[in-house]
Nucleic acid binder design. Structure first.
Lengths: 238, 238
DNA sequence: AAGTGGTCTAGACCACCGT
DNA sequence: CGGTGGTCTAGACCACTTT
């Protein structure tokens, strides 16, 4: 016999579900603590515990005197949380992007596996290079399930809004809250080297990412190549 | 005028200081909530809030019915928290180590900078290779401030207790609670390639780590080379 | 049975934001 | 000023571990 989870856990799950279904829009204010507590049949103290957990998971933001708000992806958050690249001095700077292509295709086995799709389902495939200051150390290949992004398109060959997660949320209602990355060192292939202005065979850092939405399902597959002559990938373990 | 921090924050800081100074040993039980609250002049509720924060920072562990304990580095924790290497299928296995050398030396500029020492201060320098299953994909160079590890030594050329953080804590009273890593892709140098059984020039993942103690000061500088033919470095962003 | 941490509530008071 | 979240307290009751 498995025990009933505590009320604050149930409340957290119930609120997570409401956020995932889009009950409130990003940036919108939630009802006050007192109202939510009454609605869920809890004391304010117990509800506050659930809200604190949601805040730690960055699904909501709380501002004293103003209210509780659905977290919205700002460039700042995306920059500091989902972009883990620094220069050699530890400095951080927002990159700018140049989109090379953006088209529909049917998923390769690798893409399908990463995104939890059937092989051959439709994906949007994007390729772009990203510049930081005077150098251009990043090449990315991105795949998105067409089912989640029905009207997705990006103008090609133009420097674009760089932070795609802001765009996913604003234009497609997809909020990325978590990602897993697997890193390897690889030798630059002919074509990649050309796009980055390097010699073929140069060691590059390959970052393979699965990004997930509020409900935990994969929403993006991204493979980044980083030239570590000028930059580093940073991680904090705690 | 800057405001007084809330009591639960003050309590957290006070308890952190006690843990850092070694008031209780790793694994030892702390006084009960009621005793601690009385001692610090707080209500139990406020004290519990401070303890919950310390538990999230993994400085303590709480067991219902048994008490609150100083967190102690188990191999399991070190393996899952400070060892971010998986095989290509996502499997995790504890590595075994072969120590190549372990001697005292005076810190290089790089070591001194990373550890916050004056150049020329004494460090212990360790070099080892680590095997996982049938392969041997890891080469590590480690530097420790001699001031923090006065009696440090490791037998050379013998497979040793692999998880050094368990040893740091048990034998030297140094608890690692946080680390920052900077990753790059490099071409294997002649000597490193020989030790890993690879050709010179093979792309390797270089992981440069600064590990910190409870008080936040650097206690270890470690550069790991990982052969990503058989393994990956993993990170979770959330 | 005694002692520990975990849950949940109710309420007072404070700090802050917006109008 | 009213309404919001933040802090702090006090106490009842529960679940679990240990002796």
């Amino acid at each position: 016999m498995t025990r009933r989870p505590p009320l604050h856990v149930q409340a957290e799950a119930a609120l997570t579900a409401r956020l995932a279904e889009g009950r409130w829009r990003p940036g919108e204010r939630l009802p006050s603590e007192e109202e939510l507590a009454a609605e869920l049949g809890l004391s304010v103290g117990t509800l506050r515990r659930a809200l604190a957990a949601l805040e730690r998971r960055r699904l909501i933001e709380r501002r004293q005197g103003a209210g509780t708000f659905v977290a919205s992806h700002t460039s700042e958050r995306a920059l500091f949380h989902f972009f883990r690249v620094e220069d050699l001095q530890g400095g951080r700077q927002a990159p700018t992007s140049l989109v090379l292509d953006c088209r529909e295709a049917s998923a390769t086995a690798e893409e399908a596996a990463a995104l939890g799709l059937g092989e051959g389902e439709t994906v949007h495939r994007v390729r772009r290079v990203r510049a930081i200051g005077a150098v251009q150390p990043i090449l990315e290949r991105i795949a998105l399930p067409a089912a989640l992004f029905p009207r997705f398109r990006l103008p090609v060959l133009k420097t674009m809004e760089d932070e795609l997660y802001v765009l996913y949320q604003r234009e497609h209602g997809v909020t990325v809250v978590r990602a897993e990355e697997r890193l390897a060192a690889v030798a630059a292939r002919e074509e990649d080297a050309r796009l980055l202005g390097l010699r073929a065979g140069t060691p590059l850092l390959e970052i393979a990412r699965v990004a997930r939405g509020i409900d935990g399902r994969p929403v993006e597959w991204r493979v980044t190549l980083l030239d570590t002559d000028s930059h580093r990938y940073v991680a904090v373990l705690e």
